[in-house]
Each structure stands twice: as structure tokens, then as C-alpha cells.
């Protein structure tokens, strides 16, 4: 019988580490209160964006999905409404990031990607919350507030991601 050796490359390790970091942030974030249960600011996007810029879109997508899955399994919310919201948000941010990478010229920087991801994340979460859980008119009143918050967090996340990438560049 042949032993199959899986060699974890240095890159695999990095990605694993980053995913772990993303999961940690995800878990911490789940402890924070929210106006609508389950809707989160998406701080874990910092990792997604950093990975997107450093390793490309497909890796970032992978990290994102893993984050949501692993995070929910660890917290114990797998397949719960909260999980669906996280997943919806993550899928929406990933989907908007792909076309965003095709931006001509220098394209978007970490802040730009981050804003797009955060807003898409929030919209995804809101749509799922609104259609599946609280189809109430009053929810729509919250939407502009949530989007504003998403934009702000997007900017913040983008700046942090940018720092992260700079230090990595310096470090390497």
C-alpha cells in the first residue's frame, strides 16, 4: 500500500493560519450584540481582503467559506439562522469581489475592496433576514443605518487590512 503524503506547503500553512485568524474574529464577533440578531459588521472581512490581495480571489473565497463553516461548527450554530446569515453575507461579498478584481488600472485598493465586501455582506445578510425571518416594513427603516455602518466598517477594515499587508511585505 502506498502512503500518500500530503505536503503542506508554506503557503498552505499561511492560508490555514489566516483562516484560523478569520475564524477567531468570526467567533468574537458573534459575541457582540446586534440590532437584528445575527447581523454582524463583518470584521472577519479584514482577512478576506488581505487574502484576496495577496493570494487572489479563489483563495479568498475558500478562506471565507471555511471561516463561516468552521466558525459555526465551533460555536455550535451550524445550520442555525445565524449561520445562514453569515453564509449569505460571505457569499455576497465573495461574489462582488470577483468582478471587482477586474477593475482596470491599479484597480481597487484594500479599502475599496473592503467597502464593496462589507456592503455586499450587509446586503446579503439583510436580504436573508428580511425574506426568511422578519418580513416587516420596519426592517426597511434599518437598512440605511446598516449600510452606513457597513461602509464605515468597510473603511476601517480596509485600513487595517492595508496595514496588515504592509507589515507582511516588510516582514518578507
Amino acid at each position: 500500500m502506498q502512503q500518500i503524503e500530503l505536503e503542506a506547503t508554506r503557503e498552505d500553512m499561511r492560508i490555514a493560519w489566516l483562516t484560523a485568524l478569520a475564524v477567531t474574529i468570526h467567533i468574537v464577533e458573534s459575541a457582540l450584540p446586534s440590532p437584528i440578531p445575527g447581523i454582524k459588521p463583518g470584521l472577519a472581512n479584514i482577512i478576506t481582503i488581505a487574502v484576496l490581495i495577496r493570494y487572489g480571489w479563489s483563495t479568498a473565497a475558500w478562506v471565507s467559506i471555511l471561516r463561516v463553516l468552521a466558525g459555526s461548527l465551533l460555536i455550535g450554530t451550524f445550520l442555525s439562522p445565524g449561520f445562514l446569515l453569515s453564509l449569505g453575507g460571505a457569499i455576497c461579498s465573495i461574489m462582488i469581489l470577483k468582478p471587482a478584481t477586474y477593475m482596470p488600472g491599479k484597480g481597487f485598493g484594500p479599502v475599496g475592496y473592503s467597502i464593496l465586501a462589507a456592503v455586499a455582506h450587509m446586503c446579503g445578510q439583510f436580504t436573508i433576514a428580511y425574506t426568511l425571518f422578519i418580513p416587516h416594513q420596519a426592517m426597511l427603516n434599518l437598512l440605511p443605518v446598516l449600510i452606513t455602518a457597513a461602509i464605515l466598517f468597510g473603511i476601517m477594515s480596509g485600513i487595517i487590512a492595508s496595514r496588515l499587508l504592509q507589515t507582511r511585505n516588510n516582514g518578507n
Partner: peptide, 16 residues
């Protein structure tokens, strides 16, 4: 920035 972020988040929450 992280602290600021957190404060902003919490203030938005307390309003909502």
C-alpha cells in the same frame, strides 16, 4: 482604529 471601530459599532447599536 480597532478601538474606534468598536466604539462606532457599539454606538450604532445603542441607537438602534
Amino acid at each position: 482604529l480597532s478601538v474606534l471601530l468598536l466604539c462606532l459599532f457599539l454606538s450604532v447599536l445603542s441607537a438602534c
